[in-house]
Design a protein around this nucleic acid. Structure first.
Lengths: 153, 153
DNA sequence: CCGCCTATGTCAAAATGCTGACATGCTGCA
DNA sequence: TGCAGCATGTCAGCATTTTGACATAGGCGG
């Protein structure tokens, strides 16, 4: 090896607020806040929006699927799904045809609500994208993915 | 190409799971899970640990200060502080000397508990650091900071 | 000096999320 | 066929966090 002369490469910052974990939390908190504020004006919560977006991309996902994709438990996912169902934004068959999984689908109103919100949400995403040099975007996405992969043993 | 002729530079990925926001959430969720698991073995929660770390760095922070720094409300921060106080890890004067803010300080036991946990927590941080090319670390930290700054209007 | 504004701490209620537990339905294997 | 293992949906209880509200303390400009 080429001699790693630095004695402390992994966490070179002594200030905790300069660690990866802290900055990650900070960025995520800021994003959550911005999303909350934006979605509130449209009567949706962040988990609800995330569910709609996923269902638009992958129709027929089950509650367990959605829970995994939105990083919550099945129980929490079920509450979100129930809310969306009560609001008429999604439909679920009363009885499962295959296993126990009941595939969820967007209703016409669900698709409309999603479309109405997407512009506002994508504006938030754009504010993030504009904050970082375009040249680094791909690397940032790859690094975030690597971090997640490294922590899910 | 030198010319940026692409009409959609901000969010080049059509798949939502490739957006910055989603990957940010995923990375943060993974980090939260790893931290939870690690800290549980030491009888601490993530907010409690964060508070101890901040108090070690900046003794005398008030509840409101800590709440801001840990991205929770004052009410939640107070619960955390009360828990730490009941556990004998921090002290707060019963009465404020200046305003209403009561400066918190680590006890000897608090310092000891923090020191005992830091090795395990820094190991998690190390797993993250090893997952990304060292060359990109500074850029990643800067980008995360930029994202947070861009979203806090 | 006084009133307005801001910041802080705290209480109560509601929302949200999680853990634990259980029943159901599929799959694979002997 | 029978049975163990696993995934899913769901209920109940608990923990955490937030929203909303209020009282108090200090700064500031009139």
């Amino acid at each position: 090896m080429l001699q790693n002369s630095s004695p402390e490469p992994p966490h070179p910052a002594k200030d905790v607020t300069q660690h990866v974990g802290y900055l990650l939390k900070r960025a995520q908190a800021a994003l959550r806040g911005a999303m909350d504020k934006t979605l509130r004006e449209h009567g949706l919560t962040v988990p609800q929006y995330a569910t709609l977006e996923l269902l638009a991309l992958h129709p027929g996902m089950s509650n367990a699927d959605l829970a995994r994709a939105t990083f919550v438990t099945r129980q929490s996912g079920n509450v979100v799904l129930r809310g969306l169902q009560d609001g008429g934004l999604i439909t679920r068959p009363a009885t499962a045809d295959h296993g126990r999984a009941r595939p969820a689908h967007l209703t016409e109103e669900g698709r409309a609500r999603l479309a109405a919100v997407q512009a506002a949400v994508y504006a938030v995403e754009q504010r993030m994208a504009e904050a970082i040099p375009p040249r680094r975007m791909a690397a940032l996405l790859a690094d975030l993915d690597s971090i997640a992969a490294a922590l899910e043993e």
